[in-house]
Simulated assay, not measured.
Amino acid sequence: MKAPRIASHGRGKRERGHAALVLLLGLLALWLTILSLVHFNASWSDDAWGYLRLPLFGDPDFGATVMFEPPDDLGSPVPYLKTVRGLPGAAVAVDADGTVRVDGTAIGRVKPNALDGRRLEPVASGTVPAGHYYLHADHPDSHDSRYAEIGLVPRSRILGRAVALPDIPWLGLDGPLANPRNIHAEPGPAPPDAILPHAMLPGASR
């Protein structure tokens, strides 16, 4: 009678060990999943150090902060982070002075050149088509839908909602990783007719 009890006890220990291993692997997988959804902010046009990308079910609402894939020909290795300022059906107009209006409200101004001298064309005036969105950031140097090379973003390129992560000063997480305030050689302001380039880091957003 003793031998079966010893064997049963051994099986119980092995089963508990297997359960603990499965739990540990599950927690590790959960942590890696969460980590993969954290995007470090590499743009000084925004003050948050990072954002958590969450699933977006359905279509984004006006005012939602989202991450999206910029056009392939821009060669950006990181997603962009912008706010929805124009829904399908919104009227987009560009004034002669470069002011961009959405449904009659001025929300930004187009600059003619990038800092590297590349010519920038404004987005075409017209109506935001079905399944597309005007994505915008308030910073005057934002690279967003005001420029034709970004344009009106299709829903298929919007990756999800973005939620700003709180500052953690004791970890040094209190602002953009590539913010010029955090490096020794701070660049001067962008010329009034050029937009600043945004630094890009692996796993970052701009």
Rank of each mutant, 00 (worst) to 15 (best):
L196T: 08
T65P: 06
V92S: 10
R53E: 14
G10R: 08
D141F: 03
H139F: 01
W44G: 02
V110D: 05
N179C: 00
G26M: 07
A106I: 14
A190N: 05
A185P: 02
H143P: 02
L171S: 00
D193C: 05
M200H: 11
Y147D: 10
V163F: 09
S36C: 11
S142I: 03
P129Q: 01
R16D: 07
P71A: 07
A148F: 07
T127N: 01
L52V: 11
G17H: 07
A106K: 09
N113R: 14
L135F: 02
V78L: 12
G117R: 06
T65N: 14
L165Q: 04
F40S: 10
G188I: 07
G160Y: 15
T33P: 01
P122T: 04
A130R: 04
G160L: 11
I34N: 07
P129H: 02
L74M: 13
V92K: 09
A194F: 02
I150G: 08
P154S: 13
V128Q: 00
L81R: 09
G58T: 05
A178T: 01
P166V: 03
W31C: 14
G175T: 00
R11S: 11
G50E: 03
P197T: 04
H136Q: 04
A162F: 09
L177C: 02
L54T: 11
L135D: 00
V84I: 13
H184R: 08
E15Q: 12
G160R: 14
A178L: 00
L27P: 05
V123G: 01
P169H: 01
V100L: 12
G98Q: 15
V78H: 13
M200G: 04
V22W: 14
P154M: 15
E186Y: 05
G10L: 08
K2M: 08
L35R: 15
A20R: 15
P192M: 06
P4E: 02
R161A: 14
G63R: 12
L74Q: 06
D167H: 08
V102F: 15
A199Y: 01
L152D: 13
H132E: 02
R206S: 12
G117D: 03
H39Q: 09
L32M: 11
V163E: 11
K13P: 03
A148T: 04
R119M: 12
L74R: 13
G75Q: 09
I195A: 05
A204G: 14
I150T: 10
A91G: 02
A185N: 06
P4K: 05
R85W: 15
D97N: 14
N182Y: 01
V163P: 10
H132F: 00
H9R: 15
E69M: 11
G98V: 13
H39N: 14
D73T: 14
K111W: 01
Y51S: 10
I34P: 07
E186T: 09
L159C: 12
G160P: 10
V153G: 12
G108I: 07
D138N: 03
H184P: 01
P189Q: 04
P112F: 04
W170N: 03
L159I: 10
E121G: 02
S8R: 13
L165T: 04
L135K: 03
T83S: 12
D47Q: 15
A29S: 09
V38P: 13
P4S: 06
Y133Q: 02
W49E: 05
L173T: 01
M67A: 15
G188V: 05
L21H: 12
F68D: 03
A106C: 14
R109V: 07
L173Y: 00
L177E: 00
P202E: 00
Y80T: 11
A130F: 00
L135Y: 03
A164L: 08
L201F: 08
